[in-house]
Write a protein that binds this DNA or RNA. Structure first.
Lengths: 331, 331
DNA sequence: TTGAAAGCGCTAACAG
DNA sequence: CTGTTAGCGCTTTCAA
């Protein structure tokens, strides 16, 4: 359709191989011809066809990014870190929103394979073994953002969820709380599982018993948080005086339920979240939460992928970042 | 590298042209051969190389999406609408975050052209004429989300910003406010300009004079809102009793400044925003705001693009959606 | 119904 | 330093 190498070759009067060489900075081109070619290319507004380049070079300078919910501010923050790091190295990013649905994720993954992405960054929407096995079979280098620390030999970047949760719950305990609820998100997500473990450990280590009625999980969103909290609050003889929720969105929902039930925060019920999304710091919210360096995580994730892409490092890496508890008004 | 048509052709014992035909649903293939081929392809886990397909078919089933700030929840909501509509029709989406920077946007646009995207959905980060001219020259079909209604013949989808702003300000006026400030975002953005116009119109139509000290703009983010408001509040003899801000993030920032100055909302100062991002509805926030059907806008935007892509409709369309004022606690 | 072959736009030997 | 040519994986005539 549009302008090709040949067009500009014809115009300058050289073979199109020469044009290719000149434009791609090949050293063995006459200075003058190169100059002429570059000028002409500019003048004609030539843009190389990356699809054709990709076909021959067998690389597309493209990565796939799969995230579960772009609507949760946590993920755009990461996505931005990834994208900016990527673009700096000349990579473009396919964004795929999996909606925590592993079938959608699978579909996307196949498309990305077909589109010949050079690499993959993903936070798997499910950690069921068959799904993980499917992902593992995929040939492009991958890095996981949030991925269970099992015996696997993948590269992932994650924060220490267990520790973060532990700190959060311990903080609550130190404040004198004993009946602490856990409100979680997607059951099959690593983050959820680990945060639950952290919660349980903190409870047990402090000699507190875990009431299963106070441990519930559903989606990682505000509505879930709201309904879970509401239900807990309405159950007979509810003793809850504090809640740890597996992410900020859940906390926000829970707070709404708490207020609707006419309890005061933090006097009657204290709450702490996880992620430290931007809105957690609003003066009206002042959510105590476990903070993650989101933007950096994105950058690091891409850098790790880039190392694989360029073959600098072949061995897998496990990058575990430190969470930090930010104490604000809700606890 | 990986599995190609030839591999599966060899295995089945036919020419690879036949395999291509069988797999792409070409009618003139023997039922039996087709079955064998499909089975074999499945068994071997064949995935067509979309890059190669793109080269010959001259289409990539890929679109570019350029948005100014993925960190503003307004845009992810739109992006999600676009992406889901796109994937349904078999398109993948390149996500590009321009950061309200037209040079970055330009760079992205060139990359997208090189990557041979079939279409473009963008909310331009600047409406300077040279930038717009640059965009206009781009060959792929485009649809704009937010684009000034000038003499241009583009397709765009937008809400009636002027009207929304007008309603917001009128609402404030009816509540008895006279000294109403305007806090805006990016100067060069259409949305900003139109919302400013709506503000001015409402003021003038109601016989209120506009105090230029009360009209300020900067970035479309929380920090800007905070500092603009703070400055206004600290200026001598500030009479402001209400503010209309050009988006919710700005409003959130302004609210913080108002509270820090020890004013009550809405008693001392009322405020209304624009966008109705998810967090505007939090019980703690209760931001009165002008709502936009974000997810739908995304869907509609893709559908409009799809019509162009498939040649169903060639003429440009201007889709203008209705805003709706949602009155909550801050006014 | 199938195979052979051209060609999409480009890069990378290989000659010259 | 430059031109010729093969070929990346695929679709699509054109013949058979």
């Amino acid at each position: 359709m549009s302008l090709t190498l040949k067009d500009i070759a014809k115009e300058v009067g050289v073979s199109y191989a020469t044009v290719s060489r000149a434009l791609s900075g090949h050293p063995e081109v006459n200075k003058n011809t190169r100059k002429k070619i570059i000028e002409m290319a500019e003048e004609m507004g030539y843009q190389p066809n990356a699809i054709a380049q990709g076909l021959v070079k067998n690389e597309t300078k493209t990565i796939g990014l799969l995230i579960p919910d772009i609507t949760n501010p946590f993920f755009p923050a990461i996505a931005r870190g990834i994208e900016e790091a990527a673009v700096e190295k000349g990579y473009s990013t396919f964004l795929c929103n999996t909606n925590w649905n592993k079938n959608i994720e699978k579909k996307y993954l196949n498309v990305l394979i077909q589109k010949q992405v050079d690499g993959l960054i993903l936070t798997p929407s499910s950690e069921s073994t068959d799904h993980l096995k499917f992902i593992k079979k995929l040939t492009p280098p991958k890095v996981f953002v949030n991925k269970i620390i099992d015996n696997s030999s993948d590269t992932f970047i994650i924060i220490d969820n267990k520790k973060g949760a532990y700190q959060a719950v311990e903080h609550l305990i130190k404040k004198g709380h004993e009946n602490i609820a856990f409100i979680g998100g997607e059951k099959s997500s690593t983050a959820n599982k680990e945060r639950l473990t952290g919660y349980k450990n903190a409870m047990q280590d402090n000699g507190l018993k875990i009431n299963n009625d106070y441990v519930k999980m559903k989606g990682f969103n505000r509505t879930s948080g709201y309904f879970i909290m509401k239900e807990m609050l309405m159950s007979e003889g509810c003793q809850i005086t504090a809640v740890f929720s597996a992410n900020d969105l859940l906390a926000l929902g829970a707070i709404q339920a708490i207020k609707e039930a006419n309890f005061n925060i933090p006097e009657d019920i204290a709450i702490v979240g996880f992620d430290d999304i931007e809105f957690a710091s609003l003066p009206e919210i002042q959510l105590t939460t476990v903070s993650q360096p989101k933007y950096q995580m994105g950058q690091i994730a891409f850098d790790a992928l880039y190392e694989k892409l360029t073959g600098q490092k072949t061995k897998e890496r496990k990058i575990i970042l430190e969470p930090s508890l930010i104490i604000r008004g809700t606890s």
